[in-house]
């Protein structure tokens, strides 16, 4: 997937090629998971992940979730157009220590910001690491108030692993 991402960035691959590669990856990962006797479907949720309200872009999110799961992270996919309330409810329900939000539209920044504000109001902000992805950068991060921003899933996985270790979920088998 790293090579596919590189080819896309170079302009050799188009969005549809990313999609095909992602589908192949997901199917292979599904087969591996089915063979993996150590996979525990009831393990605690590490990451709540969704595309924010008023945004429906999810190709990157779906690819990221597949890769995160393949390295051992337990991820809940909230889908697209997820309201701040729904994100917070899921964080409260699962106790996940990581919230990942993505969006490609400019307006998505306001909903990322609103979600983080609601997280603060719910008293969960301190215990929840917030990552944002999509068309984001330092400026967006400081606007919305997230802890991290990422452009690639490898970095996202590294951050999630570090956060989980910090939160003493050391028993989680993350490759």
């Amino acid at each position: 997937m790293e090579t596919v991402h590189k080819l896309y960035c170079e302009g050799t691959y188009f969005l549809s090629d990313l999609l095909i590669a992602s589908e192949v990856f997901k199917r292979v990962h599904g087969m591996v998971q089915a063979q993996n006797q150590f996979f525990d479907a009831n393990r605690p949720v590490d990451v709540v992940f969704g595309t924010v309200q008023r945004d429906i872009h999810d190709i990157g999110k779906s690819m990221a979730i597949s890769i995160m799961q393949s390295v051992g992270l337990s991820v809940v996919d909230m889908g697209v157009d997820v309201s701040p309330q729904r994100f917070i409810e899921m964080i409260q329900q699962t106790g996940a220590p990581i919230l990942c939000m993505t969006g490609l539209l400019t307006i998505s920044y306001d909903y990322m910001k609103a979600t983080i504000r609601l997280l603060e109001e719910s008293g969960k902000r301190e215990n929840t690491a917030v990552l944002i992805g999509g068309l984001v950068n330092d400026s967006v991060q400081s606007y919305v108030g997230s802890d991290y921003w990422v452009h690639d899933v490898q970095t996202a996985c590294e951050i999630c692993k570090a956060v989980l270790l910090q939160k003493s979920r050391k028993n989680v088998n993350i490759s």
Binding site: L15, S16, I59, D81
Partner: peptide
């Protein structure tokens, strides 16, 4: 253009599927 490219690269059926997945939320 991308749809036409997909037809030549992946065939009509798969190109249709790709478009539907890419734009599934529209």
């Amino acid at each position: 253009s991308e749809f036409e490219r997909n037809i030549s690269r992946y065939g009509q059926t798969r190109a249709n599927e790709i478009s539907r997945v890419m734009l599934q939320h529209y």
